[in-house]
């Protein structure tokens, strides 16, 4: 990691803490008399956060100048995302967020089935039989456990997806 990027993270931490600290100005308007108020604790925490980020910044700068600091800056002990498949990482994160995004409108049952198949393939499973079996058994098992046994109202989806989910629940005798 380059020096600029090493400095950027703690610097951003300091600036963010200070910005949040400014936003606490109005918090104590409800306080009457000698009370610490709801703004006291967050201010204390944000000052601590800013100070810790500042200490890290100083440590990084000192290390870059002459290596006199005994504490290695973060990111050096493990070289961040170097040596990993960034495409795979991006695909995994995208798939997880897509799962959450779609499940509200398409329902938990259908989305989970799709997610299990896609994520297993991404993780290296290639046998269609294994993927299909896990998708089917996994989805049905989860529905029985959480909807039938624990009464968890998992998202059913909107419009036609809701109809499909409800039909599936009836087929499985969950409803």
């Amino acid at each position: 990691m380059g020096p600029a990027r090493r400095v950027a993270a703690p610097l951003a931490g300091v600036l963010l803490s200070l910005a949040l600290l400014l936003s606490t100005r109005g918090l104590n308007q409800v306080v009457h008399g000698p009370q610490l108020g709801p703004g006291f604790w967050p201010r204390l925490v944000l000052i601590g956060l800013a100070a810790a980020c500042l200490a890290k910044l100083v440590s990084v700068l000192r290390h870059d100048r002459g290596g006199r600091s005994r504490e290695a800056p973060s990111g050096e002990a493990r070289d961040g995302v170097a040596g990993i498949s960034r495409a795979k990482l991006a695909a995994a994160i995208a798939l997880i967020f897509l799962y959450v995004l779609v499940s509200e409108s398409a329902g938990f049952a259908l989305t989970t089935a799709g997610f299990i198949a896609a994520f297993m393939w991404l993780c290296g499973a290639r046998s269609p039989l294994v993927i299909a079996a896990n998708t089917l058994v996994g989805t049905v098992g989860l529905l029985y456990l959480f909807v039938k046994a624990v009464y968890l109202p998992l998202p059913k989806g909107d419009g036609p997806f809701e109809a499909v989910t409800l039909a599936l629940y009836r087929l499985l005798h969950i409803f």
Binding site: I96, Y99, V100, S103, T112, F115, I116, F119, M120, C123, G124, A125, V130, N134, G138, L142, F146, V150, L152, L154, P155
Partner: peptide
């Protein structure tokens, strides 16, 4: 591959619950 996939699904349900 199977374990990681189901961990994500269980996390989804656990958080939603």
């Amino acid at each position: 591959a199977i374990l990681n996939t189901f961990i994500v699904v269980f996390c989804f349900v656990g958080a939603y619950a």
